[in-house]
């Protein structure tokens, strides 16, 4: 068996375990390529039946408009239910306070909205598209990751995970995060998108956009980020390697216009994709801290 087929089989197995072991699962859908691949795998896993759980999007209000268009079309095309948790609403109701300053981001605020959404709909398992190769705290994540009643992850006290036996047992109020594509790398994801001809948002491909440079990162110019006096927005030919919200996702200069060209670009790139994610740069342990608090 070839490696990508084996990974696909493993991921489908994990997704079916979720549907079988939990009462109210959901798929966390960001509109990025990893969650798109998870949704594709879920469709394959249950075909010809529909995916038996809703998609949950935690909307920071700072999304790329292209991502939202893509999301809505996908939901319509495949007849799945979409549930949106709104960070703006969390701000308006005083659950969280907006960050201030030039680098203000709603990234950390998402955690509260996510946990509120999980509680509101009583989800007991949330499927996410995180991969272990992305970041060092993720490298230790289980497929079935147990969260206590506060949504927290306890890295020192994880359940042993052996063979393909996934233990989804839990007490009331606790839930699981499940990561079916844990063992995929960025290249695997791209190759799979190419092989299966999966649709992805347009901003993964090259386009012209008003951008500006800050701390070595290219940002999309938008209403959500205030330019410093020394910064200037200009037209650049870019694409995005990951899709988060506009305040924390950096672009790369690129002319890649097809999936084949993206694969070539990924193959020759010498910087990790999270290198363009500002959320991780805040401290060396940024991801670990956010995960402990209940982040994706």
């Amino acid at each position: 068996m070839k490696h990508l087929e084996e990974l696909e089989s493993e991921s489908m197995y994990v997704i079916r375990e979720v549907a079988a072991q939990f009462e109210r699962p959901a798929l966390l859908f960001s509109g990025g390529k990893d969650s798109i691949v998870c949704f594709h795998l879920a469709r394959k896993a249950f075909f010809p039946a529909k995916v038996p759980f809703p998609l949950v999007h935690v909307d920071t209000g700072h999304n790329f408009p292209e991502t939202l268009v893509f999301r809505d079309e996908l939901v319509k095309k495949h007849g799945v239910q979409l549930i949106v948790g709104s960070v703006q609403e969390s701000i308006d109701t005083g659950r969280v306070a907006e960050e201030k300053g030039y680098n203000a981001s709603r990234n950390t605020l998402q955690t509260v909205t996510l946990l509120d959404t999980i509680e509101k709909y009583k989800f007991d398992a949330c499927i996410g598209g995180a991969r272990r190769d992305e970041e060092k705290a993720r490298a230790k994540e289980r497929f079935f990751s147990h969260r206590d009643e506060f949504g927290q992850w306890d890295p020192k006290n994880q359940r042993p995970e052996l063979w393909n036996l996934f233990n989804g047992k839990k007490n009331i109020g606790e839930h699981f995060r499940v990561f079916p594509i844990s063992n995929w790398t960025e290249m695997d994801v791209w190759q799979y998108i190419l092989k299966e001809d999966i649709e992805i948002p347009s901003i993964y491909f090259t386009h012209e956009r008003e951008c500006f440079l800050r701390d070595g990162v290219i940002y999309a110019h938008s209403d959500f980020m205030k330019l410093k006096p020394t910064e200037k927005a200009e037209k650049m030919t870019v694409r995005f390697r990951t899709i988060g919200d506009m305040t924390c996702t950096g672009a790369v200069l690129s002319k890649a216009n097809t999936l084949e060209e993206i694969v070539q670009e990924v193959a020759s790139t010498r910087v990790t994709e999270r290198g363009s994610r500002i959320d991780d740069k805040r401290s060396e342990a940024a991801m670990e801290d956010r995960k402990k608090a209940g982040y994706f």
């Binding site: 068996m1 070839k2 490696h3 990974l7 694969v263």
Partner: peptide, 14 residues
């Protein structure tokens, strides 16, 4: 920049 071969990539074992 070596040319990266998708067919070779898909042919790998795990």
């Amino acid at each position: 920049q070596e040319i990266f071969s998708t067919s070779a990539y898909l042919d790998m074992e795990l």
